[in-house]
Design a binder for these strands. Structure first.
Lengths: 159, 159
DNA sequence: AGATAATAATTGACTAGTAAGTTAATTCCC
DNA sequence: GGGAATTAACTTACTAGTCAATTATTATCT
């Protein structure tokens, strides 16, 4: 009576119940987030920017006018440095980002968003905000708050 | 008072509050799921299998002894066919999966897990089950149930 | 000062996800 | 029976994530 009748159980045509609530919730997190990822990808596609690129540009806009070194971006993205380096290569090729070696510490590479990049973000601000609200519109604000608290607790438990 | 004091607000050094609860919850979902993904990747690494490959093998074990055509696997993974084809290439190279053209319908490719693949899964069953329970152990079973219900509602809202 | 360690960023090799287009087999329909 | 549409799987090209190793620069430590 646990998993067999749940939404996930039907989704993947699984007849056996879940072994534990934790297993069911974990799978639910993965499937739900995958779904939301696709929603945001839809919102962004057409502007020629991917979700990850958009996130980097948002971070760099928030860091204006100083900009940020490469690894500081990686830290905010929870990603490894190699991926960020190559993404910045692509963003620089599209003239959304500019980089230069640091003066005081020549190991660092200073990254800043360009005016072209800022214009792109300005165009996307409204549709992205709308998508952010729509994807969880089936929950009340109180339920969203409950979700936030539970998710915070999960992450805090992994510190 | 909304976002500035929350766990996510501190994590990404964001000083401004979130624009909406929905935005905060969405970001929380992405960050939490990323964290859990890394946990499972840790559990699997050492066996030489990735999380996605493990999922495919689990699906094929569940489909024994009949096996499944390629697109049926893709459907259960919520993924496109090209990714599955290449993953099956790698799984076949490691002798965890075997494929052959269908007899009645020669467009289909029938996929089955091998004995080697079954042995790999048997080794991983315990550690994976332990990980599935541990990653959400900071929540009570009631809270996990609440999470499951909220996630089900989100996915149902996108049907 | 000079060897050593630490740090920032990069490159290479691999796994994986996407979209677009292709091939081969089957089904539909007149 | 034969042409059109559909289906299953695949290939190609691109974006992106991982780990391991490397380079250049800076800091540390006698």
């Amino acid at each position: 009576m646990l998993g067999a009748d749940s939404a996930i159980g039907r989704e993947i045509r699984q007849t056996k119940p879940f072994r534990s609530k934790s297993q069911e919730a974990t799978l639910g997190l993965f499937r739900t987030t995958d779904l939301l990822r696709r929603c945001f990808a839809e919102t962004l596609q057409g502007s020629g920017v991917t979700a990850q690129q958009y996130n980097v540009l948002r971070i760099l806009r928030g860091a204006e006018p100083e900009g940020l070194p490469t690894l500081a971006i990686a830290e905010r993205m929870l990603e490894r440095a190699p991926g960020i380096t190559r993404m910045l290569d692509r963003l620089e090729a599209k003239d959304w980002v500019m980089r230069e070696r640091g003066q005081e510490d020549r190991r660092c590479v200073h990254c800043r968003i360009t005016d072209t990049g800022l214009a792109l973000l300005a165009e996307l601000d409204e549709p992205v905000a709308a998508a952010e609200d729509q994807v969880l519109a089936m929950l009340t604000e109180g339920e969203q708050e409950t979700l936030v608290i539970l998710l915070d607790r999960i992450r805090a438990g992994h510190a």
